[in-house]
Computed example of a mutant assay.
Amino acid sequence: MKNPVKAPGFREVADRAGVSVTTVERVLNERGSVSPETRMKVLEAAAELRLRRVLPSRHYGNLRIEAILPTNPTPYWAKLSGGLKEAGKLLPRGITLHRTFIPENDPPAMIRAITASRMKRSALIVAAEIDDEIARSLPEVMRQGEILVLVSTMLPGLAAQAYSGVDNIASGRTAASLINFAMRGQACRVGVLQANSTLQSHRDRIDGFVSELNPGSSFEILITNEMPGASGRLLSKMLAKTPALDAIYETGDSAEEMAPILRKMQNRPIWIGHERNDAHDRLMHEGLLDFVLDQDPERQARWSMRYILSKLGILESGFSTVRRPELRLFCATNL
């Protein structure tokens, strides 16, 4: 008769975790006096061995996730903020989300919020556009052991970050591909309105667009710096210089300023913009705006939570099936 297989106990957990049996007993009986790193090792070993007992939480006390957002009322940021708020309601017990709003054009305030938070954080979501100055403050977050998720801006040179967003270079290339297709591969004249020259996401869109545009095409890039009235004024300047523009690509969201000008044109150009919202939907239904590239901010919020929970060792949650954000393309026929 075969001897029954012995169920794993504290000794087996200790061997797998590389700690003493006493340490295993302290962790599993929640007696404290164990570092967070050792506690995690023991709980992971116990879970892998399928120890027959209810395991304690992998973390002591409440965990705090801070999301830093800009005070920007545009639809994209409003959707992202709302998505984070709703995602926060679904977090497991003992984990809370705090949203911190910082004036958009105040990099020093953003840096202070990133590097000198008033709360003890386990994770940080930077849900804001990041310029070069802000980017230099982010390594300090990771040196402090916090989980870092970036939304909207990907920084290739920053190790150990997670990016919950779309590939902005691919976004720009997609816009150029749509124009190339509409022009049947012929060279064309394009006006580009770049919403911001200091933000990496907008620079990436421009780089991708220029690299993909049909050879021989001419283009003019004018920078609005997201100033009120700038898009309408610069579009008028473009059309005065090149009345027969074939296409317009806008990296931001200035539809309300541009639409009245384009309505007056008899032979209007192809128009491609970013971020789906009610105004863009109306313009696509009207036939004035041809395509909108969208980042899906609600999914960006949910995927950020999924990543953080997985890094915390909480694999079963309401976010476990959330897929990574993907670029979405809208036109009048798929609204």
Rank of each mutant, 00 (worst) to 15 (best):
T96H: 11
V13K: 03
Y76D: 09
R31A: 04
P215Q: 11
M238P: 03
E286C: 10
R112Y: 05
R136M: 10
P269H: 13
P56N: 08
E298F: 11
L69W: 00
Y307P: 01
S201T: 09
R64V: 15
S20H: 02
D296V: 00
S320Q: 15
A247K: 12
P92N: 11
R276P: 00
Q194W: 09
E140K: 14
G229E: 03
V151L: 01
I221F: 12
R52K: 15
A187R: 15
C331M: 15
L49N: 07
G88H: 11
N267K: 14
L262N: 05
A170K: 06
L51V: 00
A78C: 03
N225F: 13
F181D: 13
S137L: 01
A175T: 04
E257Y: 02
S320T: 13
T251D: 12
A116C: 09
L155T: 03
E104V: 01
V34F: 02
A67W: 08
E220S: 12
A135N: 02
N105R: 11
T38E: 00
D246F: 09
Q194G: 05
L283H: 15
G145Q: 07
L245K: 05
A259F: 06
S197L: 12
A230W: 10
G287Q: 12
L262Y: 09
T22E: 06
M119Q: 14
A170M: 06
T174Y: 02
Q200N: 01
P228L: 11
A47N: 10
A67M: 07
D290E: 14
R276D: 07
E146P: 01
P243Y: 02
M258G: 01
